[in-house]
């Protein structure tokens, strides 16, 4: 065990894992974070807390992580490379560890151009793969500079993202391999709205044996509207939505119900796919639907580990 988090124990025990996601608010109202956590409590092993997602200033992911711990839910802290240099990041990692946070997820971060401070400077002192290396070094007792840490090293279960829907396609597998080489223990994929492409990606992943080196959680997003699906397809860089999904939603009488049904079918399918270790359900602004999805996908109650 590297950190002994719920998530790590669940994955190491070989159970199909479920993680959720909470977007901290654009205010200091911590009750919002806890409210969302309570809605999903018991249905996921741990919950991602986004780090100023889409480059919009929000309550800090580490502070939100502490709020989650207080609500007896396990946080996955996201850290993006956009806003902080290696000094600030390592300081945050120590702070997070001191608060009892065990899962940390390394990301590049969305460019600030589309956020609420497009005139800001970006940092990118290290990139996401280098951040994984840095986290791995820290849990072995070293700062990035090579200096040895005093006392016990922090216990970290290291996560990362993988995007099978970005280009160049084959390189996406190599990039996951680099993340595994850097020390990542698990990855969560971009939300999966094109099963065919995902399956092709998983084939390449298995061909390299990567699924045995890093736990892969497939990203699931229940769709609420045709408009949202088309927006993601046309305007979000690095996303794909297959035509059959759009058509199914278009034909449905109750689009939301169809979106949920689709998510459940995806999970059922993924449960049988070799190399998929679990799902990461991203239902931002629709957290209350997570229990229903987890239950109907046959993943509730969560196993005790």
């Amino acid at each position: 065990m590297k950190a002994g988090s719920n998530l790590e124990r669940m994955l190491e025990a070989g159970h199909f894992a479920v993680t959720g996601e909470i977007g901290p608010p654009k205010s200091w109202d911590g009750a919002v974070v806890q409210h969302h956590a309570k809605m999903m409590k018991g249905y996921c092993e741990s919950y991602n807390l986004t780090d100023n997602q889409t480059a919009i200033v929000r309550l800090s992911s580490i502070a939100a992580g502490k709020l989650l711990l207080d609500a007896e839910c396990e946080p996955n802290i996201q850290i993006v490379c956009r806003d902080r240099n290696r000094i600030a990041m390592q300081s945050d990692v120590l702070g997070a560890a001191a608060l009892g946070i065990k899962n940390i997820l390394a990301l590049s971060g969305d460019h600030q151009k589309f956020g609420n401070h497009p005139y800001s400077k970006n940092v990118y002192d290290v990139d996401s793969i280098q951040l994984i290396q840095m986290l791995d070094g820290m849990r072995k007792g070293y700062f990035q500079s090579g200096e040895q840490m005093k006392g016990e090293p922090p216990k970290i279960y290291i996560g990362c993202a993988a995007n099978p829907f970005a280009d160049p396609f084959e390189f996406r597998v190599t990039r996951l391999e680099k993340k595994a080489d850097a020390g990542a223990d698990f990855c969560q994929t971009q939300c999966l709205l094109d099963m065919e492409r995902f399956e092709r990606w998983m084939e390449l992943v298995r061909a390299r044996g990567l699924h045995k080196r890093i736990k892969i959680l497939a990203g699931i997003t229940p769709l609420k509207s045709v408009k949202a699906a088309k927006y993601m397809r046309d305007y979000v860089a690095g996303m794909m939505v297959s035509d059959d999904i759009i058509q199914r939603l278009e034909k449905a009488e109750d689009i939301k119900a169809e979106g949920v049904q689709l998510a459940i079918e995806q999970i059922e399918y993924l449960k049988k796919m070799e190399g998929v270790a679990g799902v990461h359900i991203m239902a931002i602004a629709w957290e209350e639907i997570v229990p229903e999805i987890v239950k109907r996908a046959g993943l509730y109650p969560r196993p005790e580990v």
Binding site: I129, A161, R175
Partner: peptide
């Protein structure tokens, strides 16, 4: 745009 050394990031399409 992010001056990263191990790209492309997930935003490349």
């Amino acid at each position: 745009s992010k001056s990263i050394f191990n790209g492309p990031c997930g935003g490349s399409q």
